[in-house]
Amino acid sequence: MIRYILNKFIFMFLSLFVLVTATFALMNAVPGSPLQSEKATTEQIQKNMEAYYGLDKPLIQQYGLYLKKLAQFDLGISMKKRFQSVNKMISQSFGYSLRLGIVSIITSVLAGCVLGIIAAMYHRKFLDNLAMVIAVIGLAIPSMVMAPLLQYLFSVKLRMFPVTGLKEPLAYVLPTIALSSVSIAFIARLIRATMIEVLHADFIKTAKAKGLGGHLIVWRHALRNSMLPVVTYLGYLAANVITGSVIIEQIFAIPGMGKFFVQCVIDRDYPLIMGTTIFYAVLLIATRFLADIAYVLVDPRIRISAGKVGG
């Protein structure tokens, strides 16, 4: 187990290094510069600014300097918002995205599981069809349509929830629904499919022959055996959701991280591009790692041996 984790860490570090290098190269390959603007500036000003940000040095030296600062967990200073460090920008906005993200993950898993279990238990009956219709609606309506619809109906017309912001607990409701509708639907379908299969397994018959009731069988015997695909999906979902959704954060005016992902590329804000990319990558790698560990907790047949998760 410890060797597995150590190995995993080395690989995580290596992939992060590759990612940093690739991002740095791609970013500099894109035409344009963070210092270009509509304002006419003299050549001297341009040169001074380049010198200030270290852009006058050869690329390889810039890369070396960046790595050195990165090793000290310093992501640099934004080129657009002057005197704002990238570290600070991320830490200020990440809190909002994280909180909304966690609420949304919990909602996705709970609602997805409940819908999926109901669908599987009443396979081919009315409740199954109802749950799957809800799931298809969730999958089919994109969040940029869902979010304004929710706002219009529940905030403007019914005045049940605030339109925007995240100031009070009630304000979380609408963005959470908009953010998790797709993953609720996805998890519901995933659980339904595996559980229908599991409910036909021989060990379910053994459980019935023991005299256990239907609900106990689903809870104790079927659910855990149906969770594995969901755990796989969770790793991906978590990284995606807690870094914030550009669309949802825009629509609900949430000062989260989502907006940086698009804006920094348009601005060619080099340190911010690097910072957000690395931050996202670290989260993604970390959640995948946690998902690997969670496999072992869910299914005792998966044992961790050095270097890989093996069956």
């Binding site: 397994a201 021989d202 060990f203 018959k205 053994t206 459980a207 019935k208 022959a209 023991k210 005299g211 256990l212 009731g213 104790r220 015997h221 855990r224 055996n225 869910v298 299914d299 005792p300 047949r301």
Partner: peptide, 23 residues
Amino acid sequence: QKVRGNKIGMIFQDPMTSLNPTM
């Protein structure tokens, strides 16, 4: 349910699949 497993026990064909793998 009070009869099953209590007054009548049952053994199934395939022991490889008739036990819950996660328990």
